[in-house]
Computed example of a mutant assay.
Amino acid sequence: MSVWIAIGFGALDLVESEYAADGFDIVVVPATPGGPVFLLGEGAELWRRMAAGPVTVASLSAHEQEVARGLAEMGLASGDEGHPSRVRELNRPWLVSLFHELVYALISNVAASEGIDILFIKGPTLHAQGLRVREHSGDVDCWVRPGDDRKLAGAMEAWGWTPLFLPFTGTTVTHSLTLVAGEWGCAVDVHTSFPGIGLPPTEAFEALYAGSEMRLFAGAMARTPRVPEHAVIAALHDMRPYDGVPAGASAIEKSEFVLRRGGRSVLPVVSRLDAGFVLSNPLERVFGQEAAPFKTAAAPRDWGMRLETASSRRHFKALRLLPIRQRPAVLYRLVWPHSDTMRIAMGDRSATRLAVLRARVRRVGVSVRKLISRR
Protein backbone atom coordinates (compact mmCIF):
# COMPACT_ATOMS: atom_id res chain seq x y z
CA MET A 1 0.00 0.00 0.00
CA SER A 2 1.44 3.35 -1.05
CA VAL A 3 -1.48 5.78 -0.61
CA TRP A 4 -4.43 6.58 1.65
CA ILE A 5 -7.86 7.76 0.47
CA ALA A 6 -10.99 8.81 2.37
CA ILE A 7 -13.98 6.47 2.27
CA GLY A 8 -17.47 6.55 3.77
CA PHE A 9 -21.18 6.18 3.12
CA GLY A 10 -21.76 9.90 3.65
CA ALA A 11 -19.84 12.88 5.01
CA LEU A 12 -20.46 16.51 5.96
CA ASP A 13 -18.28 19.51 6.64
CA LEU A 14 -19.24 20.96 10.04
CA VAL A 15 -17.23 24.19 9.94
CA GLU A 16 -20.36 26.38 10.03
CA SER A 17 -22.64 24.06 12.00
CA GLU A 18 -23.59 24.03 15.67
CA TYR A 19 -21.08 21.20 16.20
CA ALA A 20 -18.15 23.44 15.30
CA ALA A 21 -18.47 25.12 18.71
CA ASP A 22 -17.60 21.75 20.28
CA GLY A 23 -14.52 21.46 18.10
CA PHE A 24 -15.89 18.99 15.55
CA ASP A 25 -14.85 19.58 11.94
CA ILE A 26 -16.30 16.63 10.00
CA VAL A 27 -18.88 13.86 10.44
CA VAL A 28 -18.56 10.66 8.41
CA VAL A 29 -20.72 7.57 8.04
CA PRO A 30 -18.25 4.66 7.88
CA ALA A 31 -18.20 2.31 4.90
CA THR A 32 -18.82 -0.57 7.31
CA PRO A 33 -21.86 -0.83 9.63
CA GLY A 34 -21.69 1.65 12.47
CA GLY A 35 -22.87 5.03 13.64
CA PRO A 36 -21.67 8.41 12.37
CA VAL A 37 -18.14 9.33 13.45
CA PHE A 38 -17.34 12.93 14.43
CA LEU A 39 -13.78 13.96 13.61
CA LEU A 40 -11.77 16.80 15.08
CA GLY A 41 -8.19 17.93 15.25
CA GLU A 42 -5.50 15.99 13.42
CA GLY A 43 -7.89 13.16 12.52
CA ALA A 44 -10.21 15.58 10.74
CA GLU A 45 -7.30 17.38 9.07
CA LEU A 46 -5.82 14.12 7.72
CA TRP A 47 -9.21 12.79 6.57
CA ARG A 48 -9.83 16.07 4.72
CA ARG A 49 -6.48 15.65 2.96
CA MET A 50 -7.39 12.07 2.05
CA ALA A 51 -10.66 13.28 0.53
CA ALA A 52 -8.72 15.76 -1.61
CA GLY A 53 -5.95 13.15 -2.13
CA PRO A 54 -4.81 10.47 -2.44
CA VAL A 55 -2.24 11.02 0.30
CA THR A 56 1.02 9.11 -0.15
CA VAL A 57 2.23 7.04 2.77
CA ALA A 58 5.71 8.43 2.23
CA SER A 59 4.43 11.95 2.92
CA LEU A 60 3.16 11.05 6.38
CA SER A 61 5.03 11.10 9.65
CA ALA A 62 5.04 8.00 11.82
CA HIS A 63 2.34 9.55 14.02
CA GLU A 64 0.19 10.47 10.98
CA GLN A 65 0.50 6.92 9.68
CA GLU A 66 -0.81 5.70 13.01
CA VAL A 67 -3.76 8.10 12.72
CA ALA A 68 -4.41 6.88 9.16
CA ARG A 69 -4.46 3.27 10.33
CA GLY A 70 -6.93 4.23 13.05
CA LEU A 71 -9.20 5.86 10.46
CA ALA A 72 -8.98 2.72 8.33
CA GLU A 73 -9.99 0.53 11.30
CA MET A 74 -13.09 2.72 11.70
CA GLY A 75 -14.05 2.25 8.04
CA LEU A 76 -13.10 5.82 7.12
CA ALA A 77 -9.92 5.27 5.08
CA SER A 78 -8.49 2.78 2.61
CA GLY A 79 -5.34 2.09 0.66
CA ASP A 80 -7.36 1.11 -2.43
CA GLU A 81 -7.69 4.06 -4.82
CA GLY A 82 -10.52 2.26 -6.60
CA HIS A 83 -12.58 1.69 -3.46
CA PRO A 84 -16.32 1.96 -4.34
CA SER A 85 -17.00 4.15 -1.30
CA ARG A 86 -14.25 6.66 -1.99
CA VAL A 87 -15.09 10.22 -0.92
CA ARG A 88 -13.71 12.93 -3.19
CA GLU A 89 -15.39 16.06 -1.88
CA LEU A 90 -16.81 17.38 1.36
CA ASN A 91 -20.03 19.38 1.41
CA ARG A 92 -21.83 21.36 4.08
CA PRO A 93 -25.28 20.17 5.23
CA TRP A 94 -28.39 21.59 3.58
CA LEU A 95 -31.04 19.75 5.61
CA VAL A 96 -32.22 21.07 8.97
CA SER A 97 -31.08 17.80 10.55
CA LEU A 98 -27.62 16.67 9.52
CA PHE A 99 -28.39 13.20 10.92
CA HIS A 100 -31.29 12.88 8.47
CA GLU A 101 -29.06 14.00 5.62
CA LEU A 102 -26.55 11.30 6.60
CA VAL A 103 -29.37 8.74 6.61
CA TYR A 104 -30.26 9.70 3.03
CA ALA A 105 -26.62 9.20 2.03
CA LEU A 106 -26.37 5.93 3.93
CA ILE A 107 -29.50 4.42 2.38
CA SER A 108 -28.41 5.55 -1.07
CA ASN A 109 -25.04 3.83 -0.66
CA VAL A 110 -26.49 0.68 0.89
CA ALA A 111 -29.03 0.42 -1.93
CA ALA A 112 -26.29 0.85 -4.53
CA SER A 113 -24.18 -1.85 -2.88
CA GLU A 114 -27.18 -4.20 -3.09
CA GLY A 115 -27.96 -3.31 -6.72
CA ILE A 116 -31.25 -1.65 -5.76
CA ASP A 117 -32.62 1.30 -7.73
CA ILE A 118 -34.08 3.77 -5.26
CA LEU A 119 -36.05 7.00 -5.40
CA PHE A 120 -36.33 9.34 -2.40
CA ILE A 121 -39.76 10.92 -2.05
CA LYS A 122 -41.43 13.60 0.07
CA GLY A 123 -39.41 15.10 2.93
CA PRO A 124 -37.10 18.14 2.62
CA THR A 125 -36.92 17.82 -1.17
CA LEU A 126 -40.52 19.06 -1.35
CA HIS A 127 -39.43 22.22 0.45
CA ALA A 128 -36.40 22.62 -1.81
CA GLN A 129 -38.69 22.36 -4.85
CA GLY A 130 -41.10 24.97 -3.49
CA LEU A 131 -43.86 22.40 -2.96
CA ARG A 132 -44.00 22.60 0.83
CA VAL A 133 -43.47 25.29 3.45
CA ARG A 134 -42.22 22.95 6.16
CA GLU A 135 -38.49 22.14 5.86
CA HIS A 136 -38.02 19.12 8.12
CA SER A 137 -39.52 15.63 8.14
CA GLY A 138 -39.28 13.21 11.02
CA ASP A 139 -38.51 10.18 8.88
CA VAL A 140 -37.09 9.31 5.47
CA ASP A 141 -39.29 8.02 2.65
CA CYS A 142 -37.94 6.09 -0.31
CA TRP A 143 -39.43 4.01 -3.12
CA VAL A 144 -38.10 0.78 -4.63
CA ARG A 145 -39.42 -1.95 -6.89
CA PRO A 146 -41.66 -4.57 -5.25
CA GLY A 147 -39.48 -7.19 -3.61
CA ASP A 148 -36.53 -4.85 -3.14
CA ASP A 149 -38.11 -3.55 0.07
CA ARG A 150 -37.25 -6.75 1.94
CA LYS A 151 -33.78 -6.82 0.36
CA LEU A 152 -33.07 -3.26 1.49
CA ALA A 153 -34.55 -3.95 4.94
CA GLY A 154 -32.22 -6.92 5.36
CA ALA A 155 -29.20 -4.83 4.42
CA MET A 156 -30.21 -1.99 6.76
CA GLU A 157 -30.51 -4.29 9.79
CA ALA A 158 -26.72 -4.30 10.09
CA TRP A 159 -26.86 -0.51 10.49
CA GLY A 160 -29.40 -0.66 13.32
CA TRP A 161 -32.82 -0.52 11.65
CA THR A 162 -35.46 -3.17 12.40
CA PRO A 163 -38.10 -3.97 9.76
CA LEU A 164 -41.67 -3.80 11.03
CA PHE A 165 -43.17 -6.77 9.21
CA LEU A 166 -46.97 -6.55 9.06
CA PRO A 167 -49.36 -9.31 8.02
CA PHE A 168 -49.71 -7.87 4.50
CA THR A 169 -46.01 -7.08 3.99
CA GLY A 170 -44.87 -8.46 0.65
CA THR A 171 -48.31 -8.18 -0.92
CA THR A 172 -49.85 -5.46 -3.07
CA VAL A 173 -52.04 -4.37 -0.13
CA THR A 174 -49.22 -2.86 1.97
CA HIS A 175 -47.64 0.13 0.25
CA SER A 176 -44.56 0.46 2.45
CA LEU A 177 -42.31 -1.36 4.89
CA THR A 178 -41.29 0.66 7.93
CA LEU A 179 -37.74 0.32 9.23
CA VAL A 180 -37.87 1.26 12.89
CA ALA A 181 -35.05 3.55 14.00
CA GLY A 182 -32.32 2.37 16.31
CA GLU A 183 -29.61 4.71 17.61
CA TRP A 184 -29.87 6.89 14.52
CA GLY A 185 -33.31 8.07 15.67
CA CYS A 186 -34.76 8.29 12.16
CA ALA A 187 -37.37 5.81 10.89
CA VAL A 188 -37.38 4.87 7.21
CA ASP A 189 -40.46 4.05 5.12
CA VAL A 190 -39.59 1.90 2.11
CA HIS A 191 -42.43 2.25 -0.41
CA THR A 192 -43.23 -0.23 -3.15
CA SER A 193 -46.39 1.59 -4.22
CA PHE A 194 -48.38 4.67 -3.24
CA PRO A 195 -52.07 4.86 -2.25
CA GLY A 196 -54.19 6.47 -4.92
CA ILE A 197 -52.10 5.36 -7.91
CA GLY A 198 -53.96 2.95 -10.17
CA LEU A 199 -50.96 2.05 -12.33
CA PRO A 200 -49.42 -1.31 -11.27
CA PRO A 201 -46.64 -0.79 -8.70
CA THR A 202 -43.70 -1.80 -10.87
CA GLU A 203 -44.90 0.33 -13.78
CA ALA A 204 -45.45 3.31 -11.47
CA PHE A 205 -41.92 3.00 -10.09
CA GLU A 206 -40.39 2.73 -13.56
CA ALA A 207 -42.29 5.80 -14.75
CA LEU A 208 -41.16 7.92 -11.81
CA TYR A 209 -37.60 6.61 -11.77
CA ALA A 210 -37.11 7.25 -15.48
CA GLY A 211 -38.11 10.89 -15.05
CA SER A 212 -36.29 11.58 -11.80
CA GLU A 213 -33.56 14.12 -11.06
CA MET A 214 -30.35 13.93 -9.07
CA ARG A 215 -29.87 15.59 -5.69
CA LEU A 216 -26.90 15.61 -3.30
CA PHE A 217 -27.24 14.33 0.27
CA ALA A 218 -24.08 14.37 2.42
CA GLY A 219 -21.91 13.79 -0.62
CA ALA A 220 -24.07 11.03 -2.09
CA MET A 221 -25.99 11.59 -5.32
CA ALA A 222 -29.55 10.27 -5.06
CA ARG A 223 -32.66 10.35 -7.23
CA THR A 224 -35.78 12.32 -6.34
CA PRO A 225 -38.92 12.99 -8.42
CA ARG A 226 -39.11 16.10 -10.58
CA VAL A 227 -41.48 18.88 -9.52
CA PRO A 228 -44.65 17.73 -11.42
CA GLU A 229 -44.29 14.10 -10.31
CA HIS A 230 -43.44 15.09 -6.76
CA ALA A 231 -46.42 17.45 -6.58
CA VAL A 232 -48.72 14.56 -7.50
CA ILE A 233 -47.16 12.27 -4.89
CA ALA A 234 -47.49 14.94 -2.20
CA ALA A 235 -51.11 15.63 -3.16
CA LEU A 236 -51.93 11.91 -3.01
CA HIS A 237 -50.35 11.76 0.44
CA ASP A 238 -52.62 14.58 1.61
CA MET A 239 -55.71 12.88 0.13
CA ARG A 240 -55.17 9.48 1.76
CA PRO A 241 -57.86 8.26 4.17
CA TYR A 242 -56.67 7.91 7.76
CA ASP A 243 -58.20 5.06 9.74
CA GLY A 244 -60.87 4.83 7.08
CA VAL A 245 -61.85 8.52 7.26
CA PRO A 246 -61.73 10.35 3.90
CA ALA A 247 -59.60 13.46 3.48
CA GLY A 248 -61.23 16.51 5.01
CA ALA A 249 -61.28 20.18 4.00
CA SER A 250 -57.81 20.88 5.39
CA ALA A 251 -56.27 17.96 3.49
CA ILE A 252 -57.97 19.05 0.26
CA GLU A 253 -56.58 22.58 0.72
CA LYS A 254 -53.06 21.20 1.19
CA SER A 255 -53.49 19.09 -1.93
CA GLU A 256 -54.68 22.15 -3.87
CA PHE A 257 -51.63 24.11 -2.72
CA VAL A 258 -49.11 21.56 -3.90
CA LEU A 259 -50.89 20.89 -7.21
CA ARG A 260 -51.02 24.62 -7.92
CA ARG A 261 -47.30 24.86 -7.20
CA GLY A 262 -46.70 21.93 -9.52
CA GLY A 263 -48.44 23.74 -12.37
CA ARG A 264 -50.24 22.33 -15.40
CA SER A 265 -47.48 19.78 -15.92
CA VAL A 266 -49.10 17.73 -13.15
CA LEU A 267 -52.07 16.89 -15.41
CA PRO A 268 -50.25 14.44 -17.72
CA VAL A 269 -48.54 12.92 -14.66
CA VAL A 270 -51.93 12.26 -13.05
CA SER A 271 -53.08 10.60 -16.27
CA ARG A 272 -49.93 8.48 -16.59
CA LEU A 273 -50.13 7.28 -12.99
CA ASP A 274 -53.92 6.79 -13.13
CA ALA A 275 -54.39 8.95 -10.04
CA GLY A 276 -57.36 10.98 -11.27
CA PHE A 277 -60.03 9.41 -9.06
CA VAL A 278 -58.34 10.45 -5.81
CA LEU A 279 -57.24 13.89 -7.01
CA SER A 280 -60.27 14.88 -9.10
CA ASN A 281 -61.65 17.28 -6.46
CA PRO A 282 -58.50 19.36 -5.81
CA LEU A 283 -57.56 19.20 -9.51
CA GLU A 284 -60.92 20.66 -10.49
CA ARG A 285 -60.53 23.46 -7.95
CA VAL A 286 -57.09 24.35 -9.31
CA PHE A 287 -57.47 23.73 -13.06
CA GLY A 288 -61.22 23.93 -13.66
CA GLN A 289 -62.40 22.33 -16.91
CA GLU A 290 -58.94 21.08 -17.74
CA ALA A 291 -59.42 18.52 -14.96
CA ALA A 292 -62.90 17.46 -16.11
CA PRO A 293 -61.76 14.08 -17.56
CA PHE A 294 -60.67 12.95 -14.10
CA LYS A 295 -64.24 13.18 -12.75
CA THR A 296 -65.04 9.85 -14.41
CA ALA A 297 -61.80 8.07 -13.43
CA ALA A 298 -62.14 4.63 -11.88
CA ALA A 299 -61.27 4.13 -8.21
CA PRO A 300 -58.08 2.21 -7.38
CA ARG A 301 -58.94 -1.41 -6.62
CA ASP A 302 -57.88 -1.03 -2.97
CA TRP A 303 -59.70 2.25 -2.27
CA GLY A 304 -62.79 0.62 -0.78
CA MET A 305 -60.56 -1.22 1.69
CA ARG A 306 -58.87 2.03 2.69
CA LEU A 307 -62.25 3.62 3.48
CA GLU A 308 -63.14 1.01 6.11
CA THR A 309 -63.01 2.37 9.66
CA ALA A 310 -63.14 -1.05 11.37
CA SER A 311 -59.83 -2.93 11.15
CA SER A 312 -61.56 -6.33 10.96
CA ARG A 313 -63.58 -5.32 7.90
CA ARG A 314 -60.54 -3.63 6.40
CA HIS A 315 -58.53 -6.84 6.81
CA PHE A 316 -61.35 -8.89 5.26
CA LYS A 317 -61.50 -6.62 2.22
CA ALA A 318 -57.72 -6.63 1.96
CA LEU A 319 -57.64 -10.43 1.97
CA ARG A 320 -60.09 -10.50 -0.92
CA LEU A 321 -57.65 -8.42 -2.96
CA LEU A 322 -54.95 -11.08 -2.65
CA PRO A 323 -54.40 -14.21 -4.73
CA ILE A 324 -55.76 -17.25 -2.87
CA ARG A 325 -52.26 -18.71 -2.46
CA GLN A 326 -51.16 -15.70 -0.37
CA ARG A 327 -54.12 -15.67 2.00
CA PRO A 328 -53.11 -18.46 4.44
CA ALA A 329 -49.76 -16.83 5.27
CA VAL A 330 -51.41 -13.44 5.79
CA LEU A 331 -54.13 -14.93 7.98
CA TYR A 332 -51.46 -16.62 10.07
CA ARG A 333 -49.61 -13.33 10.62
CA LEU A 334 -52.85 -11.52 11.45
CA VAL A 335 -53.31 -13.95 14.32
CA TRP A 336 -49.66 -14.55 15.18
CA PRO A 337 -47.46 -11.50 14.30
CA HIS A 338 -43.75 -11.67 13.55
CA SER A 339 -41.61 -11.81 16.73
CA ASP A 340 -39.75 -8.56 15.93
CA THR A 341 -43.08 -6.85 15.28
CA MET A 342 -44.33 -7.98 18.68
CA ARG A 343 -41.18 -6.70 20.38
CA ILE A 344 -41.64 -3.31 18.73
CA ALA A 345 -45.32 -3.25 19.80
CA MET A 346 -44.27 -4.21 23.33
CA GLY A 347 -41.68 -1.43 23.39
CA ASP A 348 -39.02 -3.95 24.43
CA ARG A 349 -36.52 -4.92 21.71
CA SER A 350 -34.85 -7.40 24.08
CA ALA A 351 -38.02 -9.23 25.14
CA THR A 352 -37.52 -12.97 25.57
CA ARG A 353 -39.30 -15.55 23.43
CA LEU A 354 -41.47 -16.42 26.43
CA ALA A 355 -42.50 -12.78 26.88
CA VAL A 356 -43.30 -12.53 23.17
CA LEU A 357 -45.36 -15.73 23.37
CA ARG A 358 -47.37 -14.37 26.30
CA ALA A 359 -47.99 -11.09 24.47
CA ARG A 360 -49.20 -12.99 21.40
CA VAL A 361 -51.59 -15.08 23.52
CA ARG A 362 -52.96 -11.93 25.20
CA ARG A 363 -53.43 -10.36 21.78
CA VAL A 364 -55.41 -13.36 20.53
CA GLY A 365 -57.54 -13.23 23.68
CA VAL A 366 -58.36 -9.55 23.14
CA SER A 367 -59.30 -10.22 19.51
CA VAL A 368 -61.58 -13.10 20.47
CA ARG A 369 -63.35 -11.00 23.11
CA LYS A 370 -63.91 -8.22 20.57
CA LEU A 371 -65.40 -10.66 18.07
CA ILE A 372 -67.73 -12.13 20.73
CA SER A 373 -68.86 -8.66 21.86
CA ARG A 374 -69.87 -7.76 18.27
CA ARG A 375 -72.10 -10.81 17.84
Rank of each mutant, 00 (worst) to 15 (best):
V67G: 15
L60F: 01
S108M: 03
E64C: 11
H63W: 05
S97H: 09
G75P: 10
A105R: 12
L106R: 07
L90G: 03
N91S: 15
E89C: 06
P93R: 12
E114S: 03
A112G: 10
F99N: 05
S108Y: 01
V57Y: 03
N109K: 13
G75C: 09
V57L: 07
V103C: 01
L95P: 02
V67E: 09
W94Q: 09
L106E: 03
F120Q: 03
R86W: 06
S113K: 01
G115H: 02
Q65A: 14
V57H: 06
L90M: 11
V57P: 01
A58T: 08
I116Y: 04
S113H: 04
L98Y: 15
V103W: 10
N91Y: 11
G79C: 06
S97Y: 13
H63P: 14
L119I: 09
L98I: 12
V87N: 00
A77Q: 08
W94A: 00
L95W: 14
R69K: 13
A62W: 00
L71A: 09
I116D: 04
S61A: 07
M74Q: 15
A68S: 13
A62Q: 09
A68M: 04
S85V: 01
N91C: 12
L90N: 07
E64M: 03
G115Y: 02
V87M: 04
R69Q: 07
L102P: 02
I116H: 03
M74P: 03
E101Q: 11
Q65D: 09
G115S: 02
S85C: 09
I116G: 05
L60P: 15
A72S: 15
L90S: 06
V57M: 05
Y104M: 11
L76K: 13
E89G: 10
F120S: 00
A111F: 09
F99K: 12
A68F: 02
S97E: 12
I118M: 05
E64Q: 13
G115N: 05
E66G: 15
N91D: 11
H100D: 07
S108Q: 12
D117T: 01
P93D: 08
S61V: 00
V57K: 10
S78A: 13
L119G: 04
R88M: 08
Y104Q: 09
L71D: 01
N91L: 12
A105Y: 13
E64W: 00
S113P: 00
I107Y: 08
P84Y: 05
S113D: 07
G70H: 03
E81H: 07
G70I: 01
P93K: 14
A111Y: 09
L119Y: 14
I118P: 06
L119T: 03
R86K: 15
I107E: 10
Y104I: 05
G75T: 13
R69C: 01
A105M: 07
Y104C: 08
H100N: 13
